[in-house]
């Protein structure tokens, strides 16, 4: 195939951001269109390169074609919207109904979320999966932090085994997710600023004392509402087609959650912490987008990639 055609199809592909089989089918279909068109144009007396240029001109901008095909595929069903937002809804219920005080409810929820995330990861890595992975990272990080409190002699386990293994796992998840679409990483990390914000507001100081628990108890309905805001944002994200709107909706839901924190934890979060949380929220959208090129061209992805994305 000529370089011009390859470049055109590559540009379409870079704007598609679909599941691998769908992406392959779209490219195959466009390639057959180009094949027919070029053949016909050559029949009118054009040279190879002229026929390819004319064909590409007739097709229109590769980026625009890719973006419009993405929009045709990007609208999820209501079931997908519900499934994608379910971990946010479950966390909202955990706080609104004050189930967070019972260890059993928290454990059931975390195990359920982690099992779903592992199942989804090894099956199709569909779009609904990423918020589930986001919440699954929480116990992994908390377990890592709690290793600090191991008896001194056992701290080496954290440094030799747990930390490198966890970092490798997280980096692998991040690179594979970005390879699929950087926006999925934003979707995955969306609850983090809110979780950290409420955590700091509850005055976490290494040990969860009675005072912090009491604050959490009074904040619980608002914590629940902030997770509901995220759930609503995610439902809208799945249902709309345009990519810039999807990004805006996710960002807005994260910003609304932070607004809840700053309103209801007044006096417990200073300006610097709030500013850092806002910066974290912005970086959740900015960093994956910036990393995408490096990961997709294989500069960083090759270190963590062992098998092609299904």
């Amino acid at each position: 195939m000529s370089t011009g055609i390859d470049e055109y199809l590559h540009n379409v592909k870079s704007s598609l951001r679909l599941e691998a089989p769908d992406e392959a089918e779209v490219i195959r279909e466009l390639a057959t269109h180009i094949e027919d068109e070029v053949k016909e144009l050559k029949g009118t007396g054009l040279r190879d390169d002229e026929a390819v240029s004319a064909c590409i001109r007739l097709l229109g901008s590769a980026k625009s074609v890719g973006r419009k095909i993405y929009e045709a595929h990007s609208q999820g069903t209501w079931q997908q919207a519900l499934l994608t937002s379910l971990p946010h809804l479950l966390f909202a219920l955990l706080f609104i109904l004050n189930w967070w005080r019972g260890l059993t409810a928290v454990l059931i929820l975390l195990i359920g979320i982690m099992s779903t995330a592992v199942y989804g990861w090894w099956h199709r890595k569909s779009g609904w999966l990423f918020p589930w992975i986001g919440y699954s990272l929480l116990p992994v990080i908390i377990a890592g932090l709690s290793l600090i409190y191991l008896p001194t002699g056992l701290t080496w386990i954290a440094f030799i085994v747990y930390i490198p293994l966890t970092l490798w796992l997280i980096l692998r998840v991040i690179t594979q997710t970005i390879k699929k679409d950087w926006l999925y990483l934003s979707l995955m990390l969306l609850p983090m600023p809110a979780i950290i914000g409420w955590f700091v507001a509850a005055d976490w100081q290494g040990n969860f004392n009675a005072e912090a628990e009491a604050r959490l108890y009074y904040d619980a309905p608002w914590i629940g509402v902030s997770f509901l805001a995220l759930a609503f944002g995610v439902v809208t994200f799945v249902r709309i087609r345009r990519r810039w709107l999807k990004i805006s909706v996710l960002f807005m839901s994260g910003a609304i959650a932070l607004t809840f924190i700053s309103s209801y934890a007044r006096g417990r979060l200073d300006f610097i912490v709030l500013l850092l949380l806002i910066l974290f929220l912005v970086s959740i959208f900015l960093v994956p987008a910036l990393l995408e090129n490096g990961v997709k061209t294989g500069r960083w992805g090759k270190y963590f990639e062992h098998r092609p994305m299904s």
Partner: peptide, 15 residues
């Protein structure tokens, strides 16, 4: 029209 615009329409109808 720009031929590339046909495929988004076809895929939308298919979806």
């Amino acid at each position: 029209f720009k031929e590339g615009t046909l495929y988004p329409a076809l895929h939308r109808l298919e979806k």
